[in-house]
Measured scan of single mutants.
Amino acid sequence: MDVFMKGLSKAKEGVVAAAEKTKQGVAEAAGKTKEGVLYVGSKTKEGVVHGVATVAEKTKEQVTNVGGAVVTGVTAVAQKTVEGAGSIAAATGFVKKDQLGKNEEGAPQEGILEDMPVDPDNEAYEMPSEEGYQDYEPEA
């Protein structure tokens, strides 16, 4: 019985440690998101679009440190934060509304985080759909 109880105690310690790591990862992701939003706020009209992409990228980098179902929630929060940063930029006159959601080359930025393969159960990952990809044929 002692062996059984000791095993359960060790398992509990492992769960607590994993929860603490997840909590730490979420806190880091939130900190990076805040950094990115402050970065966007300090940019001029020309830099705002690039700044919004930076927020998304920093958040995406930190999301990889967070495991399990938390990833889905962090990704949703990050996307809403990026959308909010863009709205703030438009409201303050840093950028025109028609410039939001495009990178410096004018290509749409939507789907940055949505296409990231995420499995809350950590069982399997699927690649994003290939609808947006084109076949590449090298020139002879």
Rank of each mutant, 00 (worst) to 15 (best):
Q109W: 12
A76R: 07
E126F: 13
Q62N: 05
M5A: 02
K97D: 12
Y39W: 07
E57I: 02
F94D: 05
T81H: 02
S129H: 08
E110A: 10
V37S: 01
G25N: 06
G86I: 13
G14I: 15
N65S: 02
G41N: 01
E83M: 07
L100M: 05
V74Q: 02
K6D: 06
Q99I: 11
V48T: 02
E104A: 08
V74E: 01
G51H: 01
G84Y: 07
V71G: 02
Y133C: 13
G7V: 09
N103K: 01
A56D: 01
P138V: 14
E35F: 12
M5N: 04
T33Q: 00
E123D: 04
S42W: 15
Y125M: 02
Q99R: 00
N122K: 06
E114K: 03
A56N: 04
A27Y: 14
L113T: 12
T33I: 07
G14P: 01
G86R: 15
G84R: 09
K80D: 01
E20V: 04
Q62W: 10
H50T: 11
A19P: 00
A11L: 15
A69S: 07
A89L: 13
P120A: 07
E83C: 04
K43F: 00
T81D: 02
Q134K: 10
G73W: 15
V3S: 05
M116E: 15
G25S: 13
M116I: 05
G36I: 15
V3A: 06
V77E: 01
K96L: 08
P138L: 11
N103L: 08
G93W: 14
G86P: 04
G106D: 03
K21Y: 08
G106C: 14
D121A: 07
P128W: 01
Q134S: 09
V26R: 00
E83P: 06
V95G: 03
G67C: 06
L8S: 00
V49K: 07
V48G: 01
A91D: 07
A107N: 08
D119M: 05
E110Y: 10
K12M: 02
D98M: 11
S9T: 04
G68E: 03
V118Q: 15
G132A: 10
G106L: 09
V49D: 01
G47M: 13
A85N: 03
E105A: 12
F4M: 05
K96A: 14
E20A: 10
K10H: 14
P120Q: 08
Y125V: 13
A56H: 08
S87W: 02
G41P: 00
K43R: 11
V37I: 15
G25I: 15
Y125W: 13
V66H: 03
A11V: 15
M5V: 08
T22L: 05
Y133A: 14
P120E: 05
G47W: 08
G31K: 07
S42L: 02
G25E: 07
V118S: 08
P120W: 06
M1N: 00
V63Q: 01
T72L: 15
Q62K: 09
A89E: 03
A107K: 09
V16P: 01
G25F: 12
A27F: 15
E137F: 04
M127D: 00
V71R: 13
D115S: 10
S129V: 00
E83Q: 04
T81F: 02
T75I: 13
V77S: 02
V49E: 10
V95T: 05
A124M: 03
